[in-house]
């Protein structure tokens, strides 16, 4: 563990903080294009965040400390996860802090507090958002963990750095279990980051409002932190997917050149993933809340089939 790897760690967290809004900007731009609209600048998310940070906080009268604590906590989990998931390099000093299961736990912590914050003010919208969010999470999390378990069983480890290395050293390419797990992971990512099937990140419409409903009462820097964290969450899920299923490009050793290459690879992959995300999002219709079980059931089925085919076929 050399000092340089600490430096990479910092670079990686900075990448996360810096590029997450850009990625969202890219996704929004693509979405506008697919819908035949002219888009805002790709840098618009930065400007939104900057504006929110400058604004004063307006707080509801009966907001408790839970409400004020939540934005910081959600932000913390995102940044912490950024120090653990190999975005640029696998040789991170903080990587042993958490394996994939712990990461799921970290995201669950953030969600737990967001849901509490939604209930704190005592409005009908907040409660609705919290209730729906926790319902979706309780179906999405088993599917997520099943997908992750399949990956861990196939690579004999739950630590992400190790998974990356096993994939690097392995000669086999076609593994049905991983393919299934990958599809399950995509479905879960779309759900967990609030893009489909019910949630719509762009509206304040009662029917499609889950994440938005919980954070309805936030303003100023609190809202900025939450927005930034949710941008990072999408970024991190994409990175987690890349590390578990297609890590090629992530630096194994820490010298400046490989890390630079890793950075370029990452940007390329982000561009492609963004396009894929928008294709799925535009192609799939939104669902009624109670059709959600089918969507997540499909994800769970994929993950389970992945695990079964690991045992049966491999």
């Amino acid at each position: 563990m050399n000092p340089f790897s600490f430096f990479i760690e910092i670079v990686q967290v900075a990448t996360l903080l810096g590029l997450a809004p850009l990625f969202i900007g890219w996704v929004r731009m693509l979405k506008c294009w697919t819908q035949g609209r002219s888009s805002a600048s790709i840098l618009q998310p930065y400007m939104d965040l900057a504006k929110l940070f400058r604004k004063n906080v307006v707080l509801a009268e009966n907001a408790s400390w839970v409400f004020r604590f939540t934005p910081y906590l959600v932000f913390c989990t995102a940044v912490l996860a950024g120090g653990i998931i190999p975005i640029l390099s696998v040789d991170l000093p903080f990587a042993p802090t958490a394996d994939v299961i712990v990461l799921v736990g970290l995201f669950a912590t953030a969600r737990f507090f967001t849901a509490l914050a939604g209930m704190d003010i005592g409005t009908a919208f907040g409660g609705m958002g919290s209730s729906r969010e926790m319902t979706i999470a309780s179906l999405a999390e088993p599917a997520m963990l099943m997908s992750i378990f399949t990956v861990s069983l196939a690579n004999k480890s739950t630590s992400i750095a190790q998974i990356v290395q096993v994939i690097y050293s392995g000669q086999s390419v076609l593994r049905p279990s991983l393919a299934f797990a990958f599809f399950a992971f995509i479905l879960i990512t779309l759900t967990e980051t609030g893009r489909i099937p019910v949630d719509n990140p762009a509206t304040h419409l009662e029917l499609t409002m889950i994440h938005e409903a919980m954070i309805l009462e936030y303003s100023g820097r609190h809202l900025a932190l939450i927005e930034w964290a949710s941008m990072m969450k999408l970024f991190l899920f994409v990175m987690l997917g890349i590390a578990c299923f297609a890590p090629w490009g992530i630096a194994e050793s820490v010298d400046i050149v490989t890390v630079l290459y890793a950075f370029i690879f990452m940007v390329l992959k982000l561009g492609i993933v963004g396009a894929g995300l928008i294709l799925i999002e535009t192609g799939l219709a939104k669902m009624r809340l109670f059709r959600l079980t089918e969507f997540l059931g499909a994800a769970f089925l994929m993950a389970t089939l992945g695990m079964l085919s690991f045992f049966i076929l491999e």
Binding site: V57, V58, L59, A60, E61, G122, T123, L216, E217
Partner: peptide, 12 residues
Amino acid sequence: AGKIQRVPVWDC
């Protein structure tokens, strides 16, 4: 940081 302003609930 600016001052935190306490106001009645907005709730859309």
